[in-house]
Amino acid sequence: MADNSMSSHGTKMNTAEEACSLFRLTDSDLAALKRLGERVVPKMDAFVEQFYVWLKTLPEYEVYFPDEAMVQHVKSLQRDYWVEVFEGVVDQSYVDRRATVGETHARIGLPLGIYFSAMNYAVTLFSVDLYDGNLNADDYAAAVIALNKVASMDTALVVDTYARISNEAAAAQSKAIMEMSTPVTQIWEGILLLPLVGLIDSKRAQDIMDASLAKIADTQARIFILDISGVGVVDTAVANYLIKVTKATRLMGCQSTISGVSPAIAQTMTELGIDVGNVRTTANMRDALSLALQAQGVAAPRVGD
């Protein structure tokens, strides 16, 4: 159950078969849909008009439809969309076009609530308002069920696209944050400082490694201070990343100090059995800096002097 709740990860709707199977959409559903289509497709213009009467009542309408040309363009797309639904053919190009529709809506930032509501209203219009009563009861029931399945499937395809686009946006954003989050800075002649904040994953560990080594090569620094006072969790994997960075800097002739080891971090690291080897560690950045300045032959001013 838990797995199914995450549609973008757990259930695949990449192909027409997968999408149909997820919504139990069968050939007889599609046939029923076609029969309803024969009744309602001729009234498609009336559908579009009524749909827009409703749409105009929404406060957001003005935002998304700034001019008449836009309205006409979207109306014709809307018409084509539903004509295709009632053709009763769900193939790959159908699925791809739904993804495109989702993408368009996501890019303009249409709230999903409006999208759901619109799909629901369209289903009501086709199955109640515009339906002429000329199907037998069984065919009508089958058609309504089929229409609901298709509308839900289309909505799911669109939501998937929404999710993908917002994930992409989030990924781009976190990449930007990531780049800002490895500010290796030369704080003194020959001394580099990298204050780490937040959680460290494997991607970030790699960024830290690359940024640190590049900066050492650029600045010819002799001492590298890695301050972890802002790091949330140091588990064995994170410790391993940090130790690797210190080993790498040493190969470039630059000694690393890990500073900012709080009592809580010191305790968890020891209990986890982490051995930092010969890496120098200090409780706070001030101690590390003072040691670094001494090593560089600078008399470090004491706090309070």
């Binding site: 588990d235 064995t236 994997a237 391993n240 130790i243 690797k244 968890t268 209990e271 986890l272 059995g273 982490i274 051995d275 930092v276 080897g277």
Partner: peptide
């Protein structure tokens, strides 16, 4: 316990138990 700095991590379970 078989944590090593060489990258061959244990499961971290013994440390987990200790904590």
């Amino acid at each position: 316990d078989h944590y090593s700095t060489g990258g061959t991590l244990g499961l971290g379970l013994s440390g987990t138990k200790r904590m």
